[in-house]
Amino acid sequence: MNVTWQGVFPAAITHFHRDQSLDIPSTLRHLEQMIDAGIHGVVMLGTVGENCSLERQEKLDVLKATVDLVRGRIPVLTGVAEYTTAFACRYAAAAKEVGVDGLMVLPAMVYKSDPRETITHFRTVANATDLPIMVYNNPPVYGVDITPTMFLELADEPTLQVIKESSDNPRRITDLYNVCGDRYILFGGVDDLILESILLGAKGWVSGLVNAFPHENRLVWDLAVSGQWEAAREIYRWYTPLLHLDTHVKLVQYIKLAVQECGYGSELTRAPRLPLVGSERENVIGIIRRAIESRPKREC
């Protein structure tokens, strides 16, 4: 299917059994619940989906099951987070064979490439597939910054269609428009900056907390894009303590704990990520439960 680059795209979590093996049925059941809540697309195997904790065949198994479940109702993307450019190209080809609709491509993992190397990486992956690509820019986490001038240099690659802007700097959205015009579609990728991002021109939202609060997440989006800013701000202020959980190094554990508290699955992650304990766990659960008690619409 052609990807309509607009709306809320969860960075979906991957569910596991207690022995840390894949729990594909729970992953699919959770995805169906988010589809019912009105998501517009989905990114499987992003950072929140623990991409780098899965083996190659496990990733393809998750994608095949997802494509079979979705049946073209929404676009299905996969994160491409590999250690080398060649690995990324091969994974992109395998993902296309499985039937995904697009890719969310990250810089090569571990090694922090310089601008020339970064441009070469994305250009090479872009030339290795005809699937549409969302470029994921997250310098705070991955240590590689794809600047507006670098995106301008990459503008001749037709498969590079979207930028997931997660630089933690909302100025970037305006800078990208000023440098690149409307060449790229811009998505917000930082949960607790999304209202600001929509105001500045973001057309979509790759969200983590939507996994636990899909209805409220969609409500914020709908209010903002329809220009109901006062109502959007009210919901956003309620939501923001939760959205802050998306910006921590333990965002996967935090989001999965919220998913568990809201009845959509379990908090189980793969080592080296471990369940939260002690005061950290108490603090995060407190944030989640206070939000549940005061939520503006539905109950978990």
Rank of each mutant, 00 (worst) to 15 (best):
V249N: 01
H248C: 02
S226F: 02
T247H: 03
R183A: 01
K250I: 00
R237G: 00
P170E: 14
N178I: 01
R171E: 15
C180I: 07
D168S: 03
I255V: 14
G227C: 07
G265C: 02
V220D: 03
R183W: 12
V190M: 05
K164C: 03
I198P: 01
Y236R: 09
E165Y: 13
S167K: 11
L195C: 03
T240Q: 13
G181Y: 07
K256E: 05
L243T: 11
R281T: 01
E234H: 11
G189C: 06
Q260S: 12
Q228S: 10
D222H: 06
Y239N: 06
E267P: 00
S197T: 04
L195H: 06
E216K: 01
N178V: 02
L242Y: 05
I163F: 06
I185S: 04
D182R: 08
V206E: 05
I255L: 13
E196I: 07
G201H: 08
A231P: 02
R171D: 15
S226C: 06
D156W: 12
H248K: 14
K256H: 04
E280I: 10
D191I: 11
E282V: 02
K164R: 10
E267M: 09
V225M: 05
K164E: 07
V225E: 02
L274D: 00
Y264H: 15
S279E: 13
P241H: 07
H244T: 09
W238Y: 13
Y254K: 03
Y264R: 12
R183Y: 08
K164W: 14
L274I: 09
V190C: 06
Y254F: 15
L186C: 08
F187S: 05
V220F: 09
T247S: 10
P170S: 13
L243E: 15
P214G: 01
V179D: 02
L242Q: 07
Y239E: 08
G189Q: 11
E165T: 05
D168P: 00
S167C: 15
E282Q: 14
